[in-house]
Design a protein around this nucleic acid. Structure first.
Lengths: 197, 197
DNA sequence: ATATTGATTGTCAATAGCGACAGTTTATTG
DNA sequence: CAATAAACTGTCGCTATTGACAATCAATAT
């Protein structure tokens, strides 16, 4: 009444990681199942066994990217120090974490492009992005309670734009100091909240 | 000794426009020749007659996007008024020109994703982007001769990031006032150059 | 030990997309 | 009215990719 123990969750994560990476590099349609399987170190029929159809796979990718976005945002905010959380947030967003790759953001960009065709995906991506922006705005307000709401939202908008830009342009291998410049501007946006009306 | 008059240039532009649009919507590999032909209102063998192979087509796309980027930048800068050119530049970049679509930027983003695989494409895209940034920086300096070089470059960087972000997120149909916010931040970056060290 | 569950592999038919060729039409020149 | 050059169309074979099924291996509980 029991069978072989299921490694479904681990395999799922493994395949999903490969899927994200391949989509980030070759686009939604450019990523073939064989490529994904090779990236995951598995065979093609096996990834089908775990993630199902191709249609199923991109649906799963949507869920994973959007949920992961929200989760990581939440975790990041929870990990911020009580002292000057906004500055720490910016430090983290633009940190040169060689461990964390920009593949997630690139996959999100690929989904965004397809969102022009799919209304549901469009609203999902939009809400996810607005949620990210709102979360950052909350941190900024926590740090600057006296600042104008509009100014806080604008600063959050700018920080998100700078972050997405840095991540989605990562394949271009921009010159030394480029990310640094983005971070500097982000900090400047924070400083603007001090005296801002 | 003469034959049917050649409409090569017009057809080339027609097909290229369809190509840009399809790549913007479906990605580099997602855009099939049949789709492109349908978008251009032509038949599949015909677009092959004009643009050649698929490989040739993406090569032509690269040239077109990158050259068009540089040309449009040059034309834009040449058209700026002598009075407060920087402000006019920002106005133009974030104008709600329903005529000009963000397809160009989206196609550029698609090329950027592939740049991870192709070293030549990578440097080409990078140089193109840095050229755009430098051109904007020139305008800013023209308007603020006393400003610090580093500050000018940083402001240009920020404006580029905001612009690319607005364009590449266009498929998401962001809510009313979103682009406006980006424009406001861009103007704020300009103001920061006045009193900046 | 055996049954049971699930991971893993092998393989084949169907389809979509691409490349290329040959042939047809159209407009311009002499 | 030829002759020519180029746009345009129809169609075929090839390859890559996918979807699906069947079969085998592995591990655990009874």
């Amino acid at each position: 009444m029991a069978g072989r123990p299921s490694n479904r969750d681990e395999r799922y994560a493994q395949v999903m990681q490969a899927l994200v990476r391949c989509v980030a590099r070759f686009g939604l349609e450019g990523a073939s199942l064989t490529q994904i399987a090779a990236e995951a170190g598995l065979t093609r029929p096996l990834i089908r066994h775990h993630l199902g159809n191709r249609e199923d796979m991109i649906a799963a990718l949507q869920d994973h990217v959007l949920h992961s976005f929200a989760e990581q945002t939440e975790a990041l905010i929870a990990a911020l120090p009580g002292d000057a959380p906004a500055a720490a947030l910016v430090e983290y967003l633009f940190a040169d974490t060689t461990g964390s790759s920009p593949d997630m953001v690139l996959a999100f960009a690929a989904l965004t492009a397809r969102a022009a065709e799919d209304a549901d995906l469009r609203t999902a991506c939009r809400e996810s992005l607005l949620g990210f922006e709102a979360a950052i705005a909350r941190v900024l307000r926590q740090d600057n309670p006296q600042a104008d709401d509009h100014a806080v939202n604008a600063a959050a908008h700018g920080i998100v734009a700078l972050y997405l830009n840095v991540a989605s342009l990562a394949p271009l291998d921009m010159p030394q100091g480029w990310t640094q410049t983005a971070q500097t501007i982000a900090h400047k946006l924070l400083e603007g909240l001090d005296g801002g009306s």
